[in-house]
C-alpha cells in the first residue's frame, strides 16, 4: 500500500523522539537534575503522533488521488476533533 511508508515514518519518528526525550529526562533525574520540560515534550509527542499518522495517511491518499481513503481519514479527523470538543466541554 502506498500510504504505508509516510505512516510508518510518522509513527517511527514519534517513537524515536518520545523515547529519546523520556530517556534524557530520566537520565537527568537520576543525576539530580530536574528537567520537566523534557517529559512534557515527550508526552506531547506521544499525544500528537496518532493524529499525525492519520494526517500522513490523508496526505498520501490525496497525493495518490485515492479519494475514498482520503474521505475516510478526513471523516475520522472530523469525528476526533468533535469528540475532543464535546469531552472538554462536558468536563468543565
Amino acid at each position: 500500500m502506498r500510504e504505508s511508508k509516510p505512516v510508518y515514518v510518522t509513527l517511527t519518528a514519534g517513537v524515536v523522539v518520545s523515547y529519546t526525550l523520556f530517556a534524557l529526562g530520566l537520565a537527568a533525574h537520576i543525576l539530580g537534575l530536574e528537567l520537566p520540560m523534557l517529559f512534557t515534550a515527550a508526552a506531547i509527542t506521544l499525544l500528537i503522533t496518532p493524529t499525525a499518522a492519520v494526517i500522513a495517511a490523508l496526505a498520501t491518499f490525496l497525493a495518490g488521488r485515492e479519494y475514498r481513503g482520503a474521505l475516510l481519514a478526513l471523516t475520522l479527523l472530523a469525528i476526533m476533533a468533535l469528540s475532543l470538543l464535546i469531552s472538554s466541554m462536558l468536563r468543565r
Partner: peptide
C-alpha cells in the same frame, strides 16, 4: 487514535504523572 483522545483530556487536566510515565 482512540487512546490519544482520552489521554489528551487527562494530560490537559494535569492528571498524568510524567515522571512515572517516563
Amino acid at each position: 487514535v482512540t487512546a490519544s483522545a482520552s489521554a489528551t483530556v487527562y494530560f490537559m487536566r494535569g492528571l498524568v504523572n510524567t515522571l512515572l510515565a517516563a
